[in-house]
Structure formats: C-alpha cells, structure tokens
C-alpha cells in the first residue's frame, strides 16, 4: 500500500511493514524497525519526503507490495517523487534498521542483507546515502521530518541519534 499524505498538519503518519508514505513539510512520519529498514528520501528545497518500511532484500520477481522489498521499494519511491512533480536529482537518503533481533539464533537473520540490498538499490539509482544507523541487535523507533529530512533514531537503552 502506498499512501500519499501531503497535508499541512504536523501529525505523524505511522509507516507499517511494506508501506511507503510521502509527505510535504510540516508532515512527519514514524516507523518501528528491527531487521527491517526505514529508508527516507528527501528533497531539501521542496521539503518533500518519502519514507519506506522495507522488510526484505529481494523480490525475486514475486508480486506484492512494492515497499516490501529493497529492489522494488527504491524505484517506487522515485516514481512517487515524479508523480508529485518533485525532481529526483539531489535527493538525500537516510536509513536506519537492519538489526538481527534474536542474536545469532532465530528465523531469517536478514538485517545485514537488508542493509546491503538497500545500499545497492540506492547506488543503482544514483542516490548517495547521507547518513545511516544500522545493524546491532536492537530495535529502532524512527521519526522522519519532511521539513529538513532529519531522521531521529531512538533505541532501547541507548542515546537518541539524529541523522
């Protein structure tokens, strides 16, 4: 599901697993990620941002929500910029997540692969990663601002980071 929220309130939109949400300042978006990746793309001059909650690295041709996979989410995010009349040059990218929540055990320790896949998809799209907070074995609560593209990352028992 893709939700384009371009309202003028400062209400935070929650971005669920596999979702992509777009917004314009003063809109903010938030997401909780573990092994998933919160990827925020931002156009600084037009103060337009898109946040994706990416779950898995590779669609391998499978259908489903484009926001779920790194290889389909990034092109879809760029498409949303184009459809909104926002140029895709000079975008900044920030990402957080990619943890391995159950340590070395547990199903699908996929955090590292998610980070690599998102980095690859951004490289292919010619977008530079401006900042990231990835890896480890803890969850992250993130808040993404369409005003200035900052991503605030909160983790249990750790200081808050601003990317």
């Amino acid at each position: 599901m893709i939700t384009a929220t371009t309202g003028t309130t400062t209400q935070e939109a929650l971005v669920g697993m596999g979702q992509i949400v777009a917004g314009k300042a003063p809109q903010q978006m938030r997401a909780i990620v573990g092994s998933c990746i919160a990827l925020g793309l931002h156009h600084p001059r037009l103060k337009f941002g898109v946040l994706a909650h990416i779950v898995l690295p590779d669609s391998a041709g499978r259908g489903g929500s484009p926001g779920k996979f790194a290889d389909t989410a990034v092109p879809q995010m760029l498409e949303i910029f184009k459809q909104s009349g926002v140029p895709t040059e000079n975008l900044t990218a920030k990402l957080a997540g990619g943890a391995n929540m159950f340590g070395s055990s547990g199903p699908m320790q996929i955090g590292d692969q998610n980070v690599e896949a998102v980095a690859l998809a951004l490289r292919r799209a010619g977008i530079r990663i401006a900042a990231q907070d990835v890896g480890g074995n803890h969850g992250r609560r993130i808040s993404f601002s369409c005003e200035d593209g900052t991503m605030i990352v909160e983790s249990a028992g750790q200081p808050t980071r601003t990317l």
Partner: peptide
C-alpha cells in the same frame, strides 16, 4: 527488552517472504 514491533517483525519474516 525492546520495541514489541521490532521483535514481532523478525518473527514474521518467514511468512512475509
């Protein structure tokens, strides 16, 4: 001790594929 949603995500990965 962490965000419940973060842990739930990891548990759901195999189904999400």
């Amino acid at each position: 001790q962490d965000f419940g949603a973060s842990v739930l995500q990891q548990a759901l990965m195999t189904q999400a594929v």
